[in-house]
Amino acid sequence: MARPSPSGLVDVVDLILDKGLVIDAYVRVSLVGIELLTIDVRVVVASVDTYLRFAEAVNRLDLKQDPEKGLPDLIQDMQEGGAKKKTTGALEGVGDTVGNMIDRVRGHGDDEDDDLTDEDEDEDEDEEDQEDEEDEQEEVEEEPARRPARRRAPAQRKRRER
């Protein structure tokens, strides 16, 4: 079992953006509104794009019954075709995690070559200008040949200004 330390950015984000006491509830007069650049890491399950990738994965999985071609080969196949990934630590072996089938938005590695055109329903938002950060826990698996581009939106939210 993995005990990542320090925690990967994905795990940190889940803990500190949605949870904890909200200072706005306590401090009303002297709250300073600052601009927060945050990542929305939610992955929407119910999207056609996600379904198609589940279907593709299960279609491919069946090939496993071909004695000539076991799962390791399949994973290899999935990683080929211009695939680029970055992985270490707990998520080692991206090829065989579910995250591989769906958009791994949580990753925001060095995938500068994404198109910005697609408006699929996944809530794929990534930070801008954060590409230089070393994130051991994130990986981005690109399969450009058959996968719609990720939408990259700078998730800039203006917090209240006072």
Binding site: I16, L17, D18, K19, G20, L21, V22, I23, D24, V27, S30, L31, V32, G33, I34, L36, T38, R159
Partner: peptide, 9 residues
């Protein structure tokens, strides 16, 4: 713990 982003004057 407080949520990320709380700033006071």
């Amino acid at each position: 713990p407080f949520r990320f982003g709380g700033v006071v004057r």
